[in-house]
Amino acid sequence: MVVMSAEADGRNMKTEYPFVLPRGYVDADGQVHRNGLMRLATARDEITPQIDPKVQQNPAYLTVLLLSRTVTRLGSVTNVGTSTIENLFASDLAFLQDLYRRINQEGRTEAEVACPSCSHSFLVDIAGEAPGES
């Protein structure tokens, strides 16, 4: 995990978030890649895709561009481009969209859940870092 020093208050700021895809990206050789890394988005990441012709023709393509800019690793794939994101299973794309929103808007990857039996509330790390995940 990479941390960057935050100048303003002297604390460390988390800038990259590990995750585990629900299904996994299958590369051209049939290898499945589930573990990945997403970095925080910059203003440039959010602004630059707006002028891309594919986004202007199909606004839904913005998601593909944003994820291709911020997902820095998928298993052994370190050059994650638009074709990689385009070839994800729909459930993995939805997972990454939610993770992107959580880390860039909420600043965390946890979600509050409640036990169906006792109604006790607790936090679960949806990125897959939590102990006991498979």
Rank of each mutant, 00 (worst) to 15 (best):
L96R: 06
E46M: 01
G10L: 08
F122E: 10
D125R: 08
S117P: 05
L62K: 04
G107C: 03
L37M: 15
R39P: 00
A90W: 04
L99D: 03
H33V: 04
F122L: 13
Y61Q: 09
E133F: 11
L40E: 03
S134G: 14
D27A: 04
A8W: 10
R44L: 01
V113A: 04
L21R: 14
R39D: 02
A114T: 14
I103R: 06
I51D: 02
P22C: 04
I51H: 03
T109H: 06
E129S: 14
H120A: 12
R69D: 04
V124N: 01
I47N: 00
E106Q: 13
V32N: 07
G132T: 07
C118S: 01
R23Y: 02
I85M: 04
A60V: 04
V20K: 14
N12P: 06
N87Q: 12
D29P: 01
Q31W: 09
A28E: 15
P53Y: 05
Y61H: 09
N87V: 08
A90C: 01
L99K: 06
P131V: 14
N35S: 14
E7K: 11
A43L: 12
T82F: 07
E133L: 08
V2F: 00
T109D: 03
G75L: 04
S91I: 11
M1Y: 09
A127W: 05
V80F: 06
G24A: 03
E7P: 11
A90Y: 00
C118R: 01
D9Q: 07
T48W: 03
A94M: 13
N58E: 13
V32S: 07
E129V: 14
L37H: 09
K54M: 12
Q50H: 09
V20R: 15
P53R: 03
P59N: 06
L99Q: 01
M1H: 12
M38F: 00
G10A: 11
Q57D: 05
P131E: 13
F89R: 15
L88D: 07
V2S: 08
G75C: 07
V113C: 05
R108T: 13
L74H: 07
A28K: 14
K14M: 15
A94E: 15
R34A: 08
R108N: 13
A43H: 09
L21W: 09
S83A: 11
M13H: 07
T15D: 02
G30C: 04
M1N: 10
N58V: 06
Q31F: 08
Q31G: 07
L88T: 04
F19W: 00
